[in-house]
Computed example of a mutant assay.
Amino acid sequence: MTKKALICGISGQDGAYLAQLLIQKGYQVAGTSRDAQMCSFRNLELLGIKEQIQLESMALNDFRSVLQILMKTEPDEVYNLAGQSSVGLSFDLPVETLESIATGTLNLLEAIRFTHRPIKFYSAGSSECFGDIGVEAADENTPFRPRSPYGVAKSTAFWQVANYREAYNIFACSGILFNHESPLRPRRFVTQKIIDRVIDIAQEKEQLLSLGNINISRDWGWAPEYVEAMYLTLQHDRPEDFVIATGVSYKLEDFVACAFAYFDLDWQKYVRCDRTLLRPTDLAFSQGNPQKAKQILGWEAQYKMPDVVRGMIEAKLQISSAI
Rank of each mutant, 00 (worst) to 15 (best):
I119Q: 08
V66S: 04
R117K: 15
I101A: 01
S123Q: 09
L81V: 08
D92M: 12
D76C: 12
I112G: 07
S123G: 09
E56Q: 14
L81N: 02
M58Q: 15
F121P: 04
S57Q: 15
D92H: 02
S100Y: 01
S123H: 11
G83H: 02
E110Y: 03
Y79G: 06
S86W: 05
G83K: 10
L106I: 05
D92W: 04
V78Y: 04
K120N: 00
T115W: 10
L106E: 01
D62G: 12
G88N: 01
N61R: 07
N61P: 04
L81K: 04
M71V: 05
S57V: 15
D76K: 03
R113T: 05
S85Y: 04
E110K: 12
E74C: 10
M58I: 13
L93P: 04
L60V: 13
I69L: 12
V87K: 00
I119N: 05
Y79S: 07
E74Y: 11
G104S: 14
D62R: 07
L70K: 06
T105I: 05
T73S: 09
A102G: 00
A111Y: 00
L109W: 03
R113S: 06
F91E: 05
Q84S: 09
S86E: 07
R117C: 12
L67D: 03
F91M: 08
Y79R: 08
R64S: 13
G88P: 00
L70N: 02
S100K: 01
P94V: 09
S90H: 00
T97Y: 00
E110C: 05
K120M: 04
D76T: 10
E99I: 05
A59N: 15
S100D: 01
N107G: 14
T97A: 03
I112D: 00
T115P: 13
E56Y: 11
A59D: 15
M58S: 07
T115Q: 13
F63H: 10
G88H: 00
N80E: 13
V66A: 03
E77F: 05
S100W: 04
S100L: 05
H116D: 08
S123I: 01
S86G: 06
F63Y: 11
L93R: 12
I119V: 15
S86Y: 02
R117H: 13
D92K: 15
E96N: 07
L60S: 11
L109H: 01
L109C: 01
L98T: 08
V66F: 11
M71Y: 15
Y122W: 11
V78M: 10
S100A: 02
S100M: 07
L81P: 06
L108Q: 11
A82L: 12
A59K: 09
S126C: 03
G104M: 14
